[in-house]
């Protein structure tokens, strides 16, 4: 089972981080990542830049999608990074998630990543096949 651990930080967390020693944060994150690598569960992971000049939102509520600079949701909660892990149970995902070196105001949202078995009844669906083809294109870039 694959799970995505989505890091969310609030304004409070951002403030707390401003005061923290950045090198120490890097070291703690590094140790956490290393522990998941050593356990053979980490498949992917990255941080998301908080330089807002490079980030944007696409709003689909109008007839034509509108690209704007924000806002990023009413709660001002931002995704700041993610990990994808492969584990044997929801409980194991929870155990790993709770070991993340995150502080006050931070939250991890954990979601199971769907796989082909979720769509087994529709294995011959043309659109699903196309979607797989699209993924293929994406990953070969």
């Amino acid at each position: 089972m694959k799970f995505m651990l989505i890091m969310r930080s609030t304004e409070a967390a951002k403030k707390a981080y401003e005061k923290a020693d950045f090198e120490q944060i890097i070291n703690q994150m590094g140790a956490y990542n290393e522990s998941m690598m050593k356990a053979g569960v980490l498949l992917a992971g990255d941080g998301l830049a908080d330089d807002m000049s490079q980030n944007f939102v696409v709003d689909f509520s109008a007839e034509t999608p509108i690209v704007t600079d924000g806002p990023y949701g009413e709660t001002h909660e931002l995704f700041s990074g993610f990990w994808i892990i492969e584990v044997s149970s929801k409980e194991e995902a929870a155990e790993w998630a709770s070991r993340a070196p995150l502080g006050e105001g931070s939250k991890l949202e954990v979601r199971r990543v769907t796989d082909m078995s979720d769509f087994q009844d529709f294995a011959d669906n043309e659109f699903l096949k196309k979607e797989e083809g699209w993924r293929e294109e994406q990953s070969s870039k």
Partner: peptide
């Protein structure tokens, strides 16, 4: 039991 199994998995 599930939690202990999960910890055991990791540790």
């Amino acid at each position: 039991r599930r939690t202990v199994d999960a910890v055991w998995r990791i540790e």
